[in-house]
Amino acid sequence: MNPPSATTTTQRPLARLAFHSTATCSAHATGYGKCILATYTDVSKDACKEEFARFAKCLRDAMGRK
């Protein structure tokens, strides 16, 4: 079953964040996700700080570029 909707406009800031977090920065997102996956039974604050910093930087660059 697939939803017929799911629009990907690049207008709204949140929609752009959605696009960049899943497409532009997917490699960094995967890196962060893998780190969480390795520790998800006992996650503490900043457990994957470095991975997220790389992901966030990629997002910031992408969002700034428009």
């Binding site: 964040l17 977090s21 997102a29 962060y32 996700g33 969480i36 998800y40 992901f55 966030a56």
Partner: peptide, 15 residues
Amino acid sequence: RRDTLAAASAIYSAL
């Protein structure tokens, strides 16, 4: 927060 949302998106896909 938007950071948290982006993080959740990455975790959703990974998990």
